[in-house]
Design a protein around this nucleic acid. Sequence first.
RNA 1: GGUCCCGUAGUUCAAUGGAUAGAACGGAUGUUUCCUAAACAUUAAAUGCAGGUUCGAUUCCUGCCGGGACCA
Length: 589
Amino acid sequence: MSLISNLKQSTANCIQQLYGIQIAPEQVLVNATKPEIEGDYTIVLFAFVKQLGKSPEVLGNELGNAMLAEMPGTLTNFNIVKGFLNFTISNQFWFDYIKHLSPENLLPKTESPRKIMVEYSSPNTNKPLHLGHLRNNFLGWSIAEILKLQGNEVVKTCIVNDRGIHICKSMIAWQLYANGATPEDTHQKGDHFVGDYYVKFNDAYKAQVAELVAGGMTQELAEKEAPIQKGAQEMLLKWEQGDAATIDLWKRMNTWVYAGFDTTYKKIGSDFAKTYFESNTYLLGKELVDQGLAKKVFYQKEDGSVWIDLTADGLDEKIVRRKDGTSVYITQDIGLAEMKQKEFNTDASIYVVGDEQNYHFKVLKLICQKLQLPASDGIYHLSYGMVELPTGKMKSREGTVVDADDLVDEMINISKEKTESLGKVSEFTPAQLTELYNTIGLGALKFFLLRVDPKKKMIFNPEESIDFHGFTGPFIQYTHARIKSILRKTGTTISLTNSELLPLEKALAIELSNFPAVINEAAETLDPSKVAIYTFNLAKLFNTFYAEHSISNADTEEKKHLRIQLGILTAATLQKGMQALGIAVPEQM
RNA sequence: GGUCCCGUAGUUCAAUGGAUAGAACGGAUGUUUCCUAAACAUUAAAUGCAGGUUCGAUUCCUGCCGGGACCA
């Protein structure tokens, strides 16, 4: 059990003993003590002052003394400032803590591991991945890593939106304008190749609409009547009827796109235990509608359409089957949820999807619960905000989309230039250099997208956002590499004997001890930014420590060994923290 | 029409209802005969507006202003 949990438990025990009042340990607020004030941890008394009818001074003294008696050897003394009870933790406690901590036991494994599915990425097959997909991919990967670090089993899946009018648009444009060209003979990545025809469709469409409007047609009608638009719709119809030529073309173009995606996924580090395709799942869920009708979860309107009434839950009425018998988007999702659950038998399922679908997922979870599908209580929506540019939203039609491949390549290039200008890795082989540039470039990008609360929309300024200093991935990678460099010189065989910790040494010990709680909190709130912030603070603290105190030239041998141990633990924690974000840390940079 | 989210230094982000609102970038000033200066230290700079609840509000409630998303 962690020290903070012990303090909470002990507080509850003491209040019970002193005043006969039951308090849940979770109710006790334990904070790190402000730097200016003596002490390490602070218990906020205000909450109990009223309940117990005691002044903060009296309560603080009685509770403080009882706690000292309850935790001898750990607590050495206390003081009270206003309603805050500040405890000082003994030197021995922290020394023992560092002594027994090792890179292997930084994180205790959960006692109740779960099997959790993380669905993320969800690309469309008509265009390449962009900045928004990167946020999605990094979030999905990171949350999977965080859950794994806790000891859970994680299954990563992907649902590909490979059917619908948008794909038909690329297909018809290719038929009209490509002259049979392929990604191979244009030396283009397949997803970009297909995406270009999506753009070509939109250009042609716009021109045709303008022409019709000039001929006297209303805008609305022109948008329906544009020949290329009608062509796309006919194509969708043919696809649904299983027309062989259409399906062939569809398969061919999808193959190109997937080859492109694979390259990108490999580069950024994304993988899936299983990929689902909407072309296979879009008919799912129909039987569930019948079951729902039988269970009276759904009801039928006079026109034959099927609905669910969610007004009692504060939502609307929602259609689940149209009057013509076709299923709607949410019906497929219910079907897919059931299918995935059957296939993997997971305890929980996390969907990494943009916040424009908040309502959709509320409805999805509610319907699954009402249908009493297994594990429907375990449906979580990791909702994330859009990535916007300083000029506003990204719009593919206006060409203001930041392409994922371009951005990744640019980041890697900048890391190359930066590394070369510093000239610290002259002995690296070309292969090692390539790997290092990738590690740093991707580290910068991933950290940038993960350091912000996922729920909030964020602004990406291509000019300013690419930074390698301060609150960035490379800063932490650098700190790790520097520690490793020192450890290579000092060696890591040590024997620890008792010594008095200096303030910065103690501060490091305290910060290291917070790691498991940070991982748990990130997992509970589905928020990797907590890990990013923690990892940054730890790195910063170590750098301050490093600037103040020498490791190899410590005053005494026992100090040196203690600091080597602190270095080992800090490096290992930084490595694990970055791993939780899907970021590698180099041994040298 | 209805539901939901967001407004914090010049900029990008923090702050389970707790002490003097933290960082980073950018600005100003310093630090390298010594373990990696992609670093460290010092410094100026912010809670949209008006009420309310509370010992205490960036946080909770109400209204307004401004930005965004979704449902029909």
